[in-house]
Amino acid sequence: MSNQFPLDIRQIMEMLPHRYPFLLVDRVLEFEPGARLKAMKNVTMNEEFFQGHFPGLPVMPGVLQLEALAQTGAVFVMSSFDEPLGDKVFLFTGLDKVKFRRPVVPGDQLILNVEFLKQKMNIWKMRGVALVDGQVACQGEFSAAIANKGDM
Rank of each mutant, 00 (worst) to 15 (best):
I146M: 11
M152Y: 06
D133I: 03
V75I: 15
W124L: 04
V89R: 10
N3E: 06
G107I: 03
D87S: 07
A70F: 01
L66D: 02
Q11N: 09
D108I: 04
A130Q: 03
R102I: 07
T93Y: 04
N3I: 04
V63N: 13
V129M: 03
E30S: 14
I111C: 05
A70P: 01
F49V: 15
N122T: 08
M60K: 13
E115W: 02
E30W: 12
S143G: 05
S2E: 06
V28H: 04
V63L: 13
G52Y: 10
K97H: 06
R127T: 01
M60P: 13
Y20M: 04
G107T: 05
M40W: 09
A68R: 11
P58A: 13
K99W: 06
L7P: 00
L85I: 07
K118G: 00
V25R: 00
Q11T: 09
V89A: 09
V105W: 01
L131F: 13
A70S: 07
M60F: 15
N113L: 12
A130E: 02
L57H: 15
G62L: 11
Q65F: 10
Q109R: 09
R10E: 11
V114F: 00
E115P: 00
G140K: 01
D133T: 07
F5C: 07
V59C: 12
P106Y: 06
I9A: 09
G150Q: 11
A137C: 06
G52M: 13
T44D: 15
F92W: 10
F5T: 08
G134M: 01
P6A: 09
F116E: 06
R19H: 08
K125A: 02
A35H: 15
L95M: 12
A130W: 01
L64R: 00
E32F: 10
Q51K: 14
V104N: 01
Q119C: 03
S143A: 09
S143D: 07
V63H: 11
F76A: 11
R27T: 10
L29R: 10
G86D: 12
L85K: 05
Q135A: 09
R27L: 08
I111K: 07
L7I: 06
L57Q: 15
Q65A: 14
E32A: 14
K118M: 00
K38T: 15
D96L: 07
A144S: 11
H18V: 08
R102W: 01
P6L: 05
L57G: 09
A70M: 08
V43I: 15
R101F: 05
P33L: 13
F116P: 00
P106S: 04
L57S: 14
G150S: 03
G94P: 05
Q51W: 14
